[in-house]
Structure formats: C-alpha cells, structure tokens
Design a binder for these strands. Sequence first.
RNA 1: GGGCAAUUAGCUCAGUUGGUUAGAGCGCUUCGUUUACACCGAAGAUGUCGGGGGUUCGAGUCCCUCAUUGCCCACCA
Length: 894
Amino acid sequence: MSHQLDKAYDPKKYESKLYQKWEDSGAFKPEGNAHLRGLVGDEMQGDAEQRNKAYTDVLRMSSTGNDEAARSEKDPFTIIMPPPNANGHIHMGTAMFVIEDLMIRYRRMQGHKTLWLPGMDHAGIETQVVYERELEKQGKSRFDLGRDEFYRQVDAFTKSNMGIMTSELKSMGFSTDWSRLTYTLDPKVVSTVYDTFKELHDAGYIYRGNRIVNWCPFCRSAFADIEVKYREQVDPLYYIKYGPFVLATVRPETKFGDTAIAVNPKDERYARLIGTTIEAEDLNGPITLQVIGDDHIDPAFGTGAMKVTPAHDPNDWEIGLRHNLRVIQTIGTDGLLTPVAGKYAGMPVAEARTQVAHDLEERGLMDHIEYDYTHSVGYHDRCGTLIEPLTVEQWWLRVDELKKPAIKAFETGEIQIVPARFKKVCMDWLENLRDWNISRQNWWGIRIPVYYNATADKSLPEYIIGTEDDAKATYGIGGYEAETDNFDTWFSSGQWPYATLMATGDFDAQSGRPGFYPTSVMETGRDILFQWVTRMVMLGIFKTGQVPFKTVYLHGLITDEHGKKMSKSKGNVLNPLEMTAKYGTDAVRLALTIGITAGNDGPLSERKIEGYRNFCNKLWNVARFILGQLPDGYSPATPELHSPADHWIASRTAIAITSVTQAIEDYRFSEAGQIVYSLLWDDFADWYIEASKVSPNHDLLVHTLETILALAHPIAPFVTEAIWSEMPWRADQQLITSAWPIVDTRRTSNEQAQRFAALQDVVMKARTVIAEEQLSKPTLITTDKSLAESADLLQRLGRLGKVEYQEQGSGLYLGAAVPAWIAADAELIATRKHRLQGQLKAKQTYAKSLEGKLNNQGFVANAPAAVVADTRDRLAEARQQATRLSEQLKALGE
RNA sequence: GGGCAAUUAGCUCAGUUGGUUAGAGCGCUUCGUUUACACCGAAGAUGUCGGGGGUUCGAGUCCCUCAUUGCCCACCA
C-alpha cells in the first residue's frame, strides 16, 4: 500500500491551502499559466502518433517547462469580472461566478493565456442607500454629516468591504488574477471615464438640458427610466371642474402647474373649443388655460379632457413640447410644493393632495371622486421611494447614433448572446432607447468633470470639461464653479471592459505581451442585460471601435428549490459561505453549475448541495481506493489495454472527453458537469473499479482517474487538486495548470468494449433475477465461450456462483445481449413463468413495432441508411430473444 | 397592449440540428456490510412528454391553436 487517504474528503483541510498554492505559483496570471504544451484542443487533427504523444504527455504530465511558442498560437482568453458591489457580502448571485471560473480554468488547461480580471464596484446609489440605512440605525442622515464627510465615510466603508469581498471570492476558489484587481474609483479608471465623456462631448453626443426626469425625493437625485419600477396600486381618481370642463386626475396637487387642457382633435364634444382659452375659478384665484388638441388624448378615458402639467408628467411634457406650453414647477426637488402653489407651498406632496382635494370639494370645484381607480406608479428601484417626475437641468447622452453600431453588432452576430433568444430583446431595447440622463445628484460617485464660468466675462465658454487646473487656466482662480452632479454608475461601469484593461496595461498588445481586448466572454445576470450589457456595447464601440466582448453569457436568478425568489422575508435565503463551510466549496460550485441552464432561473437547495458533496466524496474514495492499490514507489506508465473492461472504460472515457469538451464549447455547462458525474460514478466507480478488483490494471486506473480529475477540475477545483496533490508522482505539479484531456482512440477496440457491455447486460439481468427471487450465488450457464471465460468477473459483479459453458442452455433464460441462463429447478422456473411471459410479450411487441417500421416503404426509402441498418439489427436481436423465451415457455408445457 | 420563456416521473429539472423501448438527481419500496466510499452498493415502482389539430416514413423535439404559470417591455389623465 503506497498511500493512504483519509476515509472521507475534508474540504477544510485542503481548500485555503490549495488556493494559496495556486495563487503563489502565479497560475492565475496570464503570464503564469504558460507552462503547458500547446497541443491540446487540436485533438481531432494531426497524425495518430502525434496525438498519442500528446496524450501520453498529458497522462504522465512531466511538467514540460515553458513552451511559449506553442502557447502564443492560441488566442488569449479574457473575462472581465462583473464587479461585485463593495457594500456587503457575497450572495448566491456572486457565487455564480463559478461559471466564469469554469470557463477560465478550462481555457487555461487548454493552453490559452487566460486573464480573469477581478473588480469591485463602488456602486454609486446602491452603496449610498446601504450606507444611509446604516446611518439611520444611529439616528443620523447624510445631511447631518454633510457631503464631504459622507463621502469619506462611504469611501472607508467600501474599502473595508473590498477586503472582505476579496477573501470571500477567494474562498469560492475563483482563479482571478488578484494583482490586477480594479476598483471602479481607481484614478486610472476615472480618468478613462473622463476621457470618454470628453470624447463623447466633442463628438456632439453630450448635451445639457432642462427636461423632465424621474426624481427620487429621498435620494435627491434624478434617475434613468430603467431604474424606475412600476407598481400597481389603487388611488382615488378626482374629477375636478375647470370652467366648462370636468377633468379626471389622480394628482390634483399638481394643478398649479397646469398650463393647458388637452382634448382629442377628433372628439366632437370639444373640437370647437380647441384654440380657445378658458377662464376658470381655482383655489388660488382665477386662472387662464388654453385648450389644445392632441392625439395622445383618449376620448374614452374619463371625460375625454385632460389637464396638462408639463413639469410633472412625462406625457404632459411631450405634449408641452408639441404645443410650446409653459412649464411651471409646482413640486421642488425636496418633494415639497413650490411657492407657485400659493398657500399650499411647502407642503409635502401627499399632504397637499388631500388638502387640495378637500378644498376643491369645499369650493364646489370637485365634480365627483372615484375611489377604486387602479393604476401603476413608479418607485425608485433602489430605495423604494415614490418617483416624482419633475424638470431639472441634467447632462444627457444622445443615443440615436451611438446605438446604431451596437444594434448591428448584435444583428450580425459579431456579439453572440447565450442564450440566443436575448439577441432580439437587446436589439429591440436599443431601437427604442431614448436619450440617457447620465447626471446623478447623489453624493457617492464619480463627479462629472465640468466647470462653469462664474466670471462676468460672457466671452469665455459657458463651461469646460477637464480638471480643476484647466478651469483655473480658463477662468482664473475663483472664476469657476465645479459641477456637483455625479455620473450615473452605469455610465462608468458601461466602460468597464476597456477601462479595466487600460488601467492594468492589458488593453493593447505590447512587446512581449498580448492585448486582451476585445474580451472573450461577458458572463453576467440576465437582470442587468439592459442596464449594463447594452451600454457596454454602445460605449465600447464608441471608445475603441471594437465590440467589448465576443460572447455574452447570461445566467438567471438563483431561486429556492421551488423556483421562488430568495428573500429574507421568506426565510429561504441560502448563504454561500454557510453552505461552503458545511459541505465544501466544490459542492456549492457543482450545485450552481449542474441543473442550471443559460438564461433560466436555477433552483438551489441544501439537499442539492449535499448531493454534490457526496459526489466529491465519491471521487475522493475512488482515488483512495486506487492509491491504496498501487505498489510502493509506483510511477505511472502509458496504460496498455488488456481486458474487455479496459477497452470499455477507455472508450467511455474517450466519449466523455469529447462530449464534455463540446458541451463547454457550446456553453452547456450543466451537461458538461453531468457527463463527468456519470463517467465517475456510473462507469468508473460502479463498473470499472469493481471489475478491476478481479484483474487490476494500475496504469489504466490511474490514467482514468487523472482524466476524470482534469475533466472535473474546472467545476470542482479543490477536491480534484487535493487528490492530485496526494499522488506522489504529481508532487511538483498542479492540476490547475495541467493540460485538458484529449482523446486517444488509437488502441481502443470497439469489439472488446462491446464484449464488456454484453457482460454488463448479463450481469444486470442476473442481478434482477437474484434480487427478485432472493437467490444466493446461483450458477450461470452460457452458450457463449468468451462470456464463460470471464467467469471470475461475472461471479464478482453478478454475485454468481459457478459459471458454466454448455452447448445447450438451460435454466432461466435472461434475455440478455448474449445468451445466458441462471441455473434453476423446475419449481423456480415455474414461479418465473409469468415474468417470462411478460418478457416474451414485451419482446414480441417490440419486434412487431420494428417490423412495422421496416415494412414501411417510406421509412426504408427516406430514413438515413444507418438508422435503417440499426433498426434491422435490433429486430434480429429481439426476434432471437423472443424465440429463446418462447422455447423456454414451451418446455414448461406452454 | 407587445414580447419572451416554461408546461416531461411525487419534487427539481435535462433532453444539441426530428431517428434505439423518454433520462438524471432527490424522494419512495425491498434487499445488502463484498479489497474505496452508508456522504455506500444492488434491485424495483412511478410518465397517454399541458389539451387539441397539423407537417413527416418517423414528433417530447417542427408548425398552428387553446389553456395555465412565470418574466421582460410599454401604457395607464
């Protein structure tokens, strides 16, 4: 016995140690993983000798030193990590980076120069909201601190979180290059964002405008349309009197900003009033309103006439633009009514609404009220505050031209989306995209680099884009005012792929090192497809002239086991750190990979994780058994295939290598995982290892184990590396930088493999009879000489007694792939009679359906020859077995 | 209102361009400690693949239609 592993795999004993070793060895760096032969990945080409050489190199894996030449032929493979928000702990969504790690580890093993660049997001408004909640617990608000102090505290908060986050990401086994960790507020990133802003401005895509925006009175900031989430609710619908009109509104408090009454021009009731002005009695005295005709008005809604408040409703704003209406701001950025509201000035909106409605009723200006009006109302996505549409001066990005090449990139397939169904969704979204408000009035973020002219000299530019020094140079000391708005977080994170690479010096190829842009894959959540992915494409193409990534892989939401969203209030949240502590990191990684497909939500449960913990332990124990079998000082040689079982497992392994590789290439990670799972458990452990107990082939056992370790490594890096590290001949080498397995079919005999498959069939059928009849070590009889030769194997696998070769079979016919019987007396055969009849009937029905197929001229003529031939073979076999069964029944007096 | 997806075993889900008698994990029943593993092994039961129609030699897979569920987008005076 050369080596003894622990009885069960203990993740804690290995994980942090192995991670440290990986990182210290430089394996996570693109420069550091270049020590494989660049032969993998071309497995289907090249002459057999070459392939075999590569194969055995892989098997014995004498670390061959650097082979830069071979490696440089392969494209770099790059993933930029979607930067997690540095405002808390990782969650199952963050843990989904396992998909990225899987791709990175796979490409690394294939010999690509892989770069997985980690990042952290200051996450503007989101972090601000998180921190304000912290302040609230201390009974404070950000206004108590003031802008500068608040910024300092949030800065310290995110920086300390970054440390926590980093160690949590490391604990997940993510093989990112930490030396390139980039933060969204790194000066180099910010400077790229500033450059882009200036370039966009100079190209005419940036403008400043006083327009209607989605205003959050809590955040005291404007937000983009996409950051507003609508909720359905029931409110009163007030029918108020305006001179000759009765108008329906849910917002009577905005009436002080009404500048027109709109009707549909086709509405005969009002058509003659269009173009006139009306005098109306109002709460603050008489007012004058013009009557306009606009197609937007639905004559069937309410009274068919609508009050137009351009300052506080997006549709009214549009109508206002069409008719040149005055814009009267009635609600301020503080959420209180402005002085134009007269005696209502200073009231919060909700209070003003009640008061105005009350006063209107009192003054006889209320026609009636509908109390159960259902409509949807916008709330701020992040803080949940009711959105108040109002007008403010903001910086806007003109998107008409910018979006065109982005749409084209999706359309032509230059950017692939996995799953493909999101291609059209992206294109449609971009088609309908309107100018993007990139100003935010929050305190935590990247300040827009604009300085305004504060001098009396109007010949100077109104504003400049640049640094404070630029401002001094232009306006003189004290002659300027800095913009206080920040960028929308998505404006800066929309530049993430190139901003990061530019910051780390990996954007362009430089002497001796490759460029990593465009990146290979952007893997992220489906929920931020619009907010983030489309913006990265738009800005990436503008700034670099190239798409930022070639493939977008989207994952869905991780839900509980019944597909319900995880939430604290439901109490169904699974914490990745708790789960990894309990079951090992690999178990969580496997659970997040297998059974979850691209673009779809994936259910997760503790039970599922437990199942994959068992898988890890199974793998461990397979290794434990094999290592325990090996003689002292064993060193593996190229395996020779001797027995049918050897050929069988070699062929199973070859099929698995091909299909796992293809599955990963096609982004079918769940399937890749399942294939490895089944190869290990169903084929290797359940059959080959059991068979090997009869006649062990050490080299093949080791080789197959190593192949499985390699195939499983991208998903389950720890347990595979742990086992690898326990193999004495691998002492100086890590699995993480070993080569991805390639197929060697040169010496595999299909015929031999088939012989083992036939034996398996006999074994399974024999086991069934033994279990059903509770037999103990019965004798197996066969008319097949080669099966009889495998007596010891049959005895072991099938729990059989003797195995006898006979010219003529007798006993209970098994109906297996090769003729075999379980020796039985007449009594036993009689008790099996009904089962035999059932078997016969099933065989006959099956044969009949195959006959029907083959008698069908259409089938024979149209189906591929292989399918027809296959059908004939199956028919012949079914007939033969049916004959044997009916003979046996006949012998029983049937 | 527009769009996308899902509907397959008790549960959660696979099923790649149509081609063996439809699979997996978990759960369930029975048996079992044999050179690793009870975080194990063996055997077993459970499916008119949501309904209906069509195309095809052949449909879980393609088309139409209906139903149910979920998600996205838009609108809502």
